[in-house]
Design a protein around this nucleic acid. Structure first.
Ligand SMILES: NC(=O)c1ccc[n+]([C@@H]2O[C@H](COP(=O)([O-])OP(=O)(O)OC[C@H]3O[C@@H](n4cnc5c(N)ncnc54)[C@H](O)[C@@H]3O)[C@@H](O)[C@H]2O)c1
Ligand SMILES: NC(=O)c1ccc[n+]([C@@H]2O[C@H](COP(=O)([O-])OP(=O)(O)OC[C@H]3O[C@@H](n4cnc5c(N)ncnc54)[C@H](O)[C@@H]3O)[C@@H](O)[C@H]2O)c1
Lengths: 237, 237
DNA sequence: ATGTCTTTGTGAACGCGTGCACAAAGATGG
DNA sequence: CCATCTTTGTGCACGCGTTCACAAAGACAT
């Protein structure tokens, strides 16, 4: 596994910073709303406000894509929608499989935001044979044993995992072996994958704990109840 | 709104870096698993592997909490679980309300990971009068008009929004007015809140788009089908 | 054509986060 | 009590991301 750090001039032609990539969908959403209202152009200031970011940041982000603005006027909404869509790869169709059709998996299957951006649910998979054939969001749940053939037949490259944590690594291994190279993981586990496979995780529990941390700090600034004292002396040997 | 940037020595006493805070729940999860297996101590190397991070990073993270390790041995699992829990504010109970009990909201209500870390669902709220009284995960859905009294009576400081995007800002305003100061938002919208209120968002659609970007780049490295040429000339005036 | 006014695109400075590499701490064995 | 060996805690350097601030580009009016 070559680290490949030596060359790579930080920011180059196709080299869009990760932080910028993460914001492009945000801009796209704001632009789509403007497009639906038939707004022809927006300034970086307006668009930044709509997306909830700093305008200088937005301009720098766009500068990585090229010079698509017109000074004194702003950005052409339709053109920018197209450019960002193309950059994100949304001009093509992305078949997705969802594995684990329980509470969360079913909610995801019903989620309209999937189809709206070129993501098509190719199949719903579950290990529970009792679920097989049942319709969820208009699609039949299929047995996990069909995973390999479904991924191959539909050229699925993105998998969503909504199984219990204990099954997530096994499912991941099967997805990767079948040819999936991007995984969105909702199970609270660290997944290990080979190089070349991307994993992103969504973890509700972590988000809540981060909120709790800040919440506690806010409260502590007023109360200042226990500076340090009452820590149970559970010190190790 | 004072920016308050001038002083603030980057990292101080209670000043734990945000990136570290975001990793503490990860460490806590790994440590809890070790605790259940009655493992007494772990080295930074082992724990880092379990949490999927670099061991130096883990040690630096812990150094912000204090010196809880023993050189030559490692960290005492139970003690560390306690320290991290305390730091995250998980030694106390956090009542939470979930607003919008549709597909996603119901899945969240059913999620076991909530209660497991001191988060208690105080109420489920929905605007649909038809849902009122119906049991979801053992709790009755209550009408959104009860929001203010429920938040006040239960001292709720954390709210979860799972309504459609169009309703999210209005719900946010009501939550904030009622006293909620932390919001976890699942609706695909930018929320504006007053200073002192924290918002974290979970956005499935954005995650998928980020995956698609990298997926496209991977494919492009082999194919290199369209270098630039066939871009429709939709250039603005 | 010329001037004014708006807004982009970016150079530069700064701060945060990451990871290396190592000195010091302390456990453990003789 | 000393030597050895493991593992922590952290100084340091580096790179990424953010923000400021401004020159230049260009629209638009006269
Ligand atoms: N429900 C939530 O709001 C929520 C929130 C955050 C995270 N999560 C996580 O998402 C995951 C799913 O949550 P849920 O509430 O839907 O659980 P669930 O128990 O309702 O559903 C899990 C589904 O996965 C299936 N499954 C189990 N093993 C499988 C395997 N090896 N292959 C394929 N399918 C398998 C089960 O048959 C079941 O249908 C869990 O890891 C949970 O921790 C859930
Ligand atoms: N389902 C998913 O997997 C998923 C994934 C990502 C994001 N989201 C987002 O989460 C939100 C909910 O998704 P869903 O699939 O559960 O939708 P849903 O339509 O099933 O549920 C929405 C619920 O909110 C209630 N509601 C509407 N207006 C309200 C108001 N003003 N106050 C209180 N309740 C109100 C509705 O009565 C309904 O019960 C949406 O914004 C969606 O974009 C959903």
């Amino acid at each position: 596994m070559a680290t490949g750090r030596s060359h790579r001039p930080a920011t180059r032609g196709r080299g869009i910073p990760e932080a910028t990539v993460a914001r492009l969908p945000l801009y796209l959403r704001a632009l789509t709303a403007l497009s639906e209202r038939s707004v022809p152009t927006v300034s970086s200031e307006e668009l930044a406000a709509a997306a909830g970011v700093n305008s200088a940041k937005l301009r720098k982000d766009f500068s990585y894509l090229g010079s698509y603005g017109t000074r004194g006027v702003g950005y052409d909404v339709e053109y920018l929608v197209y450019q960002i869509s193309r950059e994100l790869g949304l001009t093509q169709d992305w078949p997705v499989v969802i594995v684990g059709i329980g509470n969360l998996g079913a909610a995801l299957a019903n989620y309209g935001g999937f189809a709206s951006r070129g993501f098509r649910v190719a199949a719903l998979l579950d290990a529970d044979a009792g679920l097989a054939g049942r319709l969820v969001a208009g699609l039949p749940v299929r047995h996990i044993d069909e995973l390999e053939s479904i991924v191959a037949d539909n050229q699925v490259s993105i998998g969503v995992i909504a199984t219990p944590a204990g099954a997530a690594q096994e499912v991941t291994d099967r997805l990767v072996a079948a040819g999936v190279t991007s995984i969105l993981n909702f199970a609270p586990t660290v997944l290990s994958v080979p190089d070349g496979v991307d994993v992103r995780k969504v973890d509700l529990s972590i988000e809540l704990q981060i909120l709790a941390f800040h919440e506690q700090r806010k409260a502590g600034e007023d109360d200042r109840q226990e500076p340090d004292g009452d820590v149970p002396a559970v010190m190790p040997a």
